Simulated assay, not measured.
Amino acid sequence: MSPEVLWPKAVRSAVKTGPDREIVSAYPYRNACPTSVWASLIDGASQQITFAGYTNYFVWQEQPRLAARLARKAQDGCAVRFIVGDPDSEVTRRREAAEAVPLTVGTRIRITLDALEKIKHSPGIEARFSDEHIALSVFTFDDQMLVTPHISNLLGHESPLLHLRRLGEDGLYDRFAAHATALWQNGRPIWPDDGTTTTTS
């Protein structure tokens, strides 16, 4: 029987029975999500971590000793990937004009690049440029994910955030994970001499 038959309307309104079961929490602002949630997801992941935010700047500011934690994760076999915007691209320049703040998008990206430079030789840590995710940030931690759709000219911390957990095929998690995978496959190596090749299919 379908959930509509099994569950009275009053119960269905309080118990998730559809694709929204994958939504663990929703926050009207990214910075309303506790830093402890981010820490738990980062430290709890063992297979893969992907930071597909356009700048990823805030994670270095909010997570103590992040570089060392990620390097240790990578050494233990966890694949760590960063997908960031190109600080010199036209997409970045347009976003800087829209935000019109002193700490520019390009500067925030370069802070991430500087942090990554210090750990780029740790096996398992990779990074690529992409200009295709200016309006959507996806951060994956094994079977959990944090997603931020960026609103208008607002900064990332002012946009909403969803905490998702994968529960089945082709759900919300898988849809956003496919987006992150496409970004990675079409991305450009940040360190051209590191042996990384760009996949376009």
Rank of each mutant, 00 (worst) to 15 (best):
residue 81 R to C: 07
residue 5 V to H: 02
residue 85 G to E: 09
residue 109 I to D: 00
residue 159 S to W: 00
residue 120 K to I: 13
residue 65 R to I: 03
residue 134 I to A: 10
residue 103 L to W: 13
residue 158 E to C: 13
residue 165 R to Q: 15
residue 92 T to I: 03
residue 102 P to F: 14
residue 23 I to Y: 06
residue 166 R to I: 13
residue 94 R to E: 03
residue 185 Q to H: 09
residue 152 S to A: 15
residue 179 H to C: 01
residue 106 G to D: 04
residue 115 A to Q: 07
residue 54 Y to N: 09
residue 174 D to G: 00
residue 63 Q to I: 11
residue 94 R to C: 00
residue 149 P to R: 12
residue 175 R to D: 05
residue 164 L to Y: 04
residue 60 W to Y: 06
residue 173 Y to L: 07
residue 177 A to M: 04
residue 158 E to M: 10
residue 108 R to Y: 11
residue 183 L to A: 04
residue 40 S to W: 04
residue 19 P to M: 08
residue 175 R to W: 10
residue 99 E to C: 02
residue 93 R to S: 03
residue 93 R to Q: 03
residue 64 P to I: 05
residue 140 T to W: 01
residue 112 T to V: 07
residue 82 F to I: 05
residue 124 G to E: 04
residue 181 T to P: 04
residue 149 P to D: 02
residue 122 S to K: 08
residue 119 I to C: 02
residue 108 R to W: 12
residue 168 G to V: 01
residue 84 V to T: 10
residue 101 V to R: 14
residue 177 A to E: 06
residue 25 S to Y: 00
residue 98 A to D: 15
residue 178 A to H: 12
residue 155 L to M: 12
residue 58 F to G: 02
residue 14 A to N: 13
residue 51 F to L: 14
residue 109 I to R: 05
residue 155 L to D: 03
residue 40 S to M: 15
residue 195 G to E: 04
residue 49 I to D: 08
residue 105 V to R: 05
residue 164 L to K: 06
residue 165 R to V: 10
residue 162 L to H: 04
residue 197 T to S: 14
residue 170 D to G: 03
residue 39 A to W: 06
residue 41 L to F: 08
residue 130 S to I: 01
residue 35 T to R: 13
residue 101 V to C: 05
residue 108 R to S: 10
residue 153 N to E: 13
residue 11 V to T: 07
residue 42 I to S: 00
residue 92 T to N: 01
residue 169 E to R: 15
residue 191 W to S: 00
residue 68 A to D: 13
residue 58 F to Q: 08
residue 32 A to I: 00
residue 145 M to T: 12
residue 82 F to W: 11
residue 53 G to D: 15
residue 96 E to S: 05
residue 46 S to Y: 02
residue 82 F to C: 09
